[in-house]
């Protein structure tokens, strides 16, 4: 990551401000997903452990609705070629990754705030553990979704394939993150959650390395 990828991120950011490709869809999706849960729950009291799981369900599907834009928008408009002519593949991946990480953080922070405001059972007893798992989980989510987005942007069927391809790759991350969120809801200490935290950290590192190594193959057709 360097100033070049940062400039690419700025390009995407400015472009996003003008076209609002991802932001509008994401914002609406968050509202839709949370209201679907609210309607289906009705007046039932749901348990804290269920809210923890549903929290990640909302995050997963929201991510799937917006994160593919980073590459799909370039491919649809035919500007991938232009990017290839001005930047090395690693710069492109890093730039898109910065964009998606920021998008994921903004979107998940909004989800977390809305979520804790709406669901009474969603009370976090160990805030710092929640924050740690939230940050690490978001990074992993962004890294994997970005490389899968690159794959589907080069494949034919765009929208439908994205969650299908992403889910198995994200499954270990989501399972562990759900577990960590439950720990945070239960007020379990860092000491007892360190195995899960280590899993998420290594997931982030390994996925990041693999993505940078494999991106060349995707990008150079």
């Amino acid at each position: 990551m360097n100033s070049k990828s940062y400039s690419l991120f700025l390009k995407d950011f400015k472009s996003e401000l003008r076209t609002r490709y991802a932001i509008n869809a994401l914002a609406m999706f968050i509202i839709v997903a949370i209201s679907v849960i609210l309607f289906s729950v009705g007046n039932e009291k749901i348990s804290p452990s269920l809210t923890g799981g549903l929290f990640w369900v909302v995050i997963f599907f929201t991510a799937m609705s917006g994160l593919s834009r980073a590459f799909v928008s370039e491919e649809e408009r035919g500007t991938s070629l232009t990017l290839q002519l001005i930047a090395a593949p690693s710069t492109v991946y890093a730039g898109k990754l910065i964009f998606n990480i920021i998008l994921v953080f903004v979107m998940n922070t909004i989800i977390a705030i809305l979520y804790s405001a709406i669901f009474e059972a969603f009370i976090i007893k160990n805030f710092w553990l929640f924050l740690a798992s939230f940050v690490l989980g978001n990074i992993g989510l962004a890294v994997s979704s970005t490389i899968i987005a690159a794959i589907i942007s080069k494949a034919g069927a765009k929208g439908t394939l994205y969650p299908v391809l992403s889910f198995p790759i994200l499954l270990p991350l989501i399972l562990t993150s759900v577990q960590l969120t439950l720990f945070a809801l239960d007020g379990i200490s860092f000491e007892r959650a360190k195995f899960e935290l280590a899993i998420v950290v290594s997931y982030d590192v390994i996925m990041l390395t693999a993505s940078f190594m494999l991106f060349d193959f995707i990008w150079k057709e």
Partner: peptide
């Protein structure tokens, strides 16, 4: 390298 071709597309929103 400088590259010009009919299938090259620049960013239309800028």
């Amino acid at each position: 390298i400088g590259f010009v071709s009919p299938y090259l597309v620049l960013y239309e929103e800028f």
